[in-house]
Design a protein around this nucleic acid. Structure first.
Lengths: 218, 218
DNA sequence: CGAACTTTTGAACCCCTTCAACATCAGTGG
DNA sequence: CCACTGATGTTGAAGGGGTTCAAAAGTTCG
């Protein structure tokens, strides 16, 4: 479990991670189990220890939008208002540390932690704005390429990794990118045919030409 | 110019609006003039006094995504990190109050203003997340309906107004909703044919059946 | 193995885009 | 006042990218 403070991930600021580890209650969630619900009071903050988490929002007819994916070291819930606009579910069996926001607030008087909370919110906003551009103005191919590159950067922030493993299903990817599972699957097949990636198993990829992939995201 | 503190708009928290009005430099921008640029240092905070502003992000080939629209009383720039991820332009001739963030920070020691900054960031995040759902999972018709309803709520927060005037062009709407101008135009024509709205002139609409429109957004 | 689920592949369709023409409006100057 | 011009918006027709529906192939786990 890495707790590095990285602007490109949801990583918890060290000050908050420390408090979480001191005060946090360890909870386990099975695959697809709900961690918190849409419209629920947001009185808890979660730090992912192992596994992976997605946040989702539903339209009345069941169409789903995935807001973001969270991995070990990432923080969920600091940035939310009094009520959760998205629900959160475990993508696979996961463990998270849970702390009451009020408990965190009790340690936030010194201003430094206050600032850390704002930073976390601000970075969440930046990622969401990036996501906005992907959903609004990119093609299916560019969407998938953008997603793969963001996964790669997460694993090796200093230089895009060539090996990428994905805990989420094709449905999760599709709902994150505003596509269907069929389109995601076809696009991955196409990227492989073009020699940009290699599919080891369906949740384990090799980025053969990361430079070319990155150009698809510009 | 209203400075009401409304969670559904970009309205400035009273504490910040007050400081802005005391310290702000009044600047005028012509239609389509740039207020700040993408990748520029974000050392200024802007309060819209009159007119309207859009934030935009460009892909390398010129495709454009509009991030948000801002109206009198709305604040721009508090939520940004050290560098602007979006540029901002005046939609029509506009006046804004400008203050250095450092100047604002000097008044932020009391914690209450600190909290106001976080709240502003948090509400910006919530709106962006709402926008995410619109871009990712809604049809053209639902997108336009959602946009019209958000405009209506802005004008009369207590009960959706029936009269809506839009300072932005069809191109701005299209780039906000991830559509083309033709599709936006056709959709508006269709909504009128269905009796949901009435087009007075192309930037002045009447919402005839706001309830039905709202159902399109669910 | 066998059942349930996930992923891939195929074929037809459709919503939105693209390309093109026309309409409308504001501003300018004869 | 009207002709001219450029910007903006609307409408039409054709095309394409992504969806939908269907079925096969692969994966997981009892």
């Amino acid at each position: 479990m890495t707790l590095a403070y990285d602007t490109e991930t949801h990583a918890a600021p060290p000050a908050i991670a420390e408090v979480m580890q001191r005060l946090g209650l360890k909870m386990s969630f099975a695959k697809d189990e709900e961690i918190f619900a849409q419209d629920e009071d947001a009185d808890l903050v979660h730090l992912v220890v192992s596994g992976a988490v997605r946040t989702t929002r539903l339209l009345s007819d069941g169409r789903r939008q995935v807001g973001a994916f969270y991995y070990p070291g990432d923080l969920i819930g600091l940035e939310t208002g009094p009520i959760h606009r998205f629900s959160a579910e475990a993508i696979c069996d996961s463990v998270v540390l849970v702390v009451r926001r009020t408990a965190l607030k009790a340690f936030a008087g010194d201003g430094q932690l206050d600032r850390a909370i704002w930073e976390a919110t601000r970075r969440e906003l930046e990622r969401t704005q990036e996501h906005l551009l992907v959903l609004g103005r990119k093609t299916a191919c560019e969407k998938v390429a953008s997603f793969l590159m963001s996964l790669a950067q997460r694993e090796r922030p200093e230089a895009a990794a060539t090996r990428v493993s994905m805990p989420m299903s094709r449905q999760d990817m599709a709902d994150y990118l505003g596509l269907t599972i069929e389109t995601v699957s076809r696009t991955i097949t196409q990227l492989q045919a073009d020699g940009l990636i290699e599919v080891r198993c369906c949740r384990q990829l090799l980025l053969k030409r990361p430079r070319a992939l990155a150009e698809l995201c510009e």
